[in-house]
Amino acid sequence: MQAELKEKIKQRENTYNRVTGLLISYLALDISSEQLDPDTPLFGVGLELDSIDAIEIIISLESEFGIVLDDGESASFLRTINSLVDEVIHRKEVELDERN
């Protein structure tokens, strides 16, 4: 495997592990990270979260990753664990671009 791909996968896994970790701790889920699949839905089915949990996730994203949602900004990334991971990675990339 090429080093670049290896690094990309490593970054994805690290972010994924941090996101599942914060979901478990902030939402006090009685489940281990191995029992979560990346494309598990967050609301309705899957983790069966509710609107209070959504607020907890947004707070945890700010606290763990420094992600702040502006007023009126869509939270459409709150669909699956993977879509949360995508959002965190995307925001990190944007931040890096802006710094450069």
């Binding site: 990309k8 996968i9 994805r12 896994e13 994924y16 990346p38 494309d39 993977n82 991971v85 995508d86």
Partner: peptide, 10 residues
């Protein structure tokens, strides 16, 4: 594994 992640265009 480990190719099973989303976000890979390889």
């Amino acid at each position: 594994r480990p190719y099973w992640h989303a976000g890979l265009d390889v």
